[in-house]
């Protein structure tokens, strides 16, 4: 089946860049011209027809086809072997619990965090170690960027148009990482979220910017997690008190202490669930006393259930750092996990 997208002819590579910029079709960075050959190579790799309906954006009834995703994936720098991750990530974003329109239009300025699990991460060269949260490798950067370009070009999620973000954050350029399954004794994130053992999967979450923390002065799991929980509480005090999906990224130096103590991800989640709570009265300490009213004694939990915490093993080998990634806006958007290529016609669980 031939491609349906309109074709344009430009003089050379530089002319192509100016053409794309002039049309508002990029994120401000140069793009790879999406030639027919390059787009078709992506579709062929994923085994998808150009008109394959990946999904429909529910608010605006905007149909998203594989061809349009492939065009933007090429523009972002994706190789064909990256494309199945892009398709799966967008499939996940189109699931109702993700609330794509709200997450991409909100003044809150979140970005789509993408976590990739399974053998595909090694196959396409994703590196879950050094610099895990930004610019770690070609595949991670290009996949994350492709989602942003898809939002811009397929759904008009441009700053000042649909995208009403007051500030946004750098993750909007690209916010994609693999989980370091080889370097971890923990169950992979996707497997914990019900995906088949050994499957390659993508998890998406409407996420704020990562908040980096450090505690390398203890080996006690509870104390390490007290630092993570404290950062979550800070987000609840300074940003939003409502519960939602939080993600924590745990690099090897801290993971080693959990592994030595026999703590599973479930143990981590259970502890953080209990510790990440604040009283509404704490808002008075940070300038929000006007909304405390007579409910100062009410306790708010960051997580509605332990399962709402996404525990991700990733990061470079040295340093007692970690990161908390907060939700866009409480429970409005839910993290969604989808298996890659399990069955393109199957109903998403």
């Amino acid at each position: 089946m031939p491609l349906a997208s309109r074709r344009y002819e430009v003089a050379d590579m530089m002319a192509a860049q100016e053409f794309y910029h002039s049309r508002g079709w990029t994120d401000g960075l140069p793009v790879v011209p999406p030639t027919a050959d390059a787009v078709e190579a992506c579709l062929e790799w994923a085994g998808l027809a150009p008109d394959h309906l990946v999904g429909v954006e529910p608010v605006r009834a905007c149909a998203i086809t594989a061809e349009k995703l492939a065009v933007n994936a090429v523009m972002a720098g994706c190789l064909p072997m990256h494309f199945p991750v892009v398709v799966t990530a967008f499939t996940a974003m189109l699931q109702e619990p993700f609330l794509l329109h709200g997450a991409t239009a909100s003044t809150g300025g979140c970005a789509v965090l993408v976590v990739v699990n399974g053998p595909i991460t090694a196959d396409i060269g994703m590196d879950a170690t050094f610099n895990a949260l930004a610019s770690s490798d070609r595949a991670s950067t290009a996949i994350g960027r492709s989602l942003r370009l898809c939002l811009i070009n397929l759904m008009d999620v441009r700053p000042g148009a649909i995208d009403r973000s007051v500030l946004g954050h750098p993750g909007k350029i690209s916010y994609c990482l693999a989980e370091d399954e080889a370097g971890s004794e923990w169950l992979p994130l996707a497997e914990e979220r019900g995906m088949p053992v050994g499957a390659s999967c993508v998890t998406v979450m409407a996420a704020g910017a990562p908040r980096q923390l450090m505690n390398e002065w203890t080996t006690v799991p509870e104390e390490i997690l007290d630092t993570f929980a404290s950062e979550i509480r800070a987000n609840m005090r300074h940003y939003s008190i409502w519960p939602g999906n939080y993600a924590i990224v745990v690099p090897p130096q801290l993971r080693a202490h959990f592994h030595a103590a026999g703590w599973s991800k479930a143990d981590v989640r259970a502890y953080v669930f209990e510790k990440a709570r604040i009283l509404r009265s704490e808002w008075a300490d940070c300038g929000k006393g006007a909304v405390v009213r007579d409910r100062g004694g009410s306790e708010y939990a960051a997580l509605s259930a332990p399962e709402d915490l996404l525990v991700i093993a990733a990061g470079g080998p040295a340093g007692g750092f970690g990161a908390v990634i907060p939700p866009w806006l409480g429970p409005k958007s839910r993290a969604v996990t989808v298996a890659i290529g399990a069955c393109v016609d199957c109903e998403i669980p």
């Binding site: 008009d156 148009a161 649909i162």
Partner: peptide, 12 residues
């Protein structure tokens, strides 16, 4: 939010 409302009305 007037411009956002106008845009959404248009796309819908």
């Amino acid at each position: 939010f007037v411009s956002a409302a106008e845009l959404m009305a248009r796309v819908l």
